[in-house]
Amino acid sequence: MQIDAIFLHIGVVLIKKSEMNALCKTLCDFWDSSIGKKLIVAVTGVMLVGFLIAHMAGNLLIFQGRESLNDYAYFLHHFLHGMGIWLFRVGLIVAFVLHIVATVSLTRQNRAARSEKYAHEATSRASLSSRYMIWSGLTVIAFVIFHLLHFTVRIDPDLASMKDPMDPSRHDAYGMVIAGFQNPVVVLFYIISISFLCSHLSHGIASIFQTLGFNSKKTRDPFHKLGLVISVVLWLGFLSIPFLALFDLIGDGEKDAPVPMEASVNTELLFRC
């Protein structure tokens, strides 16, 4: 009986292993195929564009004032007992890494496929954005590293130590953003990087629909225009903040000397009256 049971157990394990092998083979074939890898780029692209839209919408809360943005920042760091943001971060990192690894691999294959260039090269309809996707993408990687060190890791101790004047127990995201964009060189870097990002998206978003197979003669133009509209809206939304902060058109001029808590409470009371 016991020996039978052992054999049965081994049999079950073997079946499972063979099923696992079949699944692994399918996944490997999918990754190795041109269309499979492009589908991965498209799906991760959807996730990254979704993140960008949500990120921009959250950022725009800065125009509602300190309390709104700081409430939002507090919520992000504390929902699901602080686990929520890490779930998002892990998902984003996986999408970001897969997107980069797949596109770099595809680009290398593409270059190998046209090993000898034309002596007289001509382009019929490929947009400039579409021809420099790898370079705009690599610029975005450099920007993301800088941006994370700037506002997420906060390597600048002045930015890291800012406290909300209305609730000193929490970080002052609002003051940090205003103070972080007082340096024209930083603002210029943001403008260049976001412009590259939006150039990347102007081709990338329309490509998502083609790669996922949603395009037809009726839908191709609307999807192309949708990609352009989303890119322009993201460009305006993201860059409005550093641009307006640099020229003191947002914020209340307190970045050098934080407003005392009483003053802001008094202002709030005034508004209530």
Binding site: S34, K37, K38, L106, Q109, N110, A112, A113, R114, T123, S124, R125, A126, S127, S130, R131, M133, H203, A206, S207, F209, Q210, T211, G213, F214, N215, S216, K217, R220
Partner: peptide, 24 residues
């Protein structure tokens, strides 16, 4: 062969004007 990057150069030169919708 290389991979499609949705630039539609193919469609522009196809002598039979086949649409890139076949790629989608």
């Amino acid at each position: 062969f290389g991979n499609c990057t949705n630039q539609y150069e193919c469609e522009a030169v196809c002598p039979k004007e086949i649409s890139s919708d076949v790629i989608a």
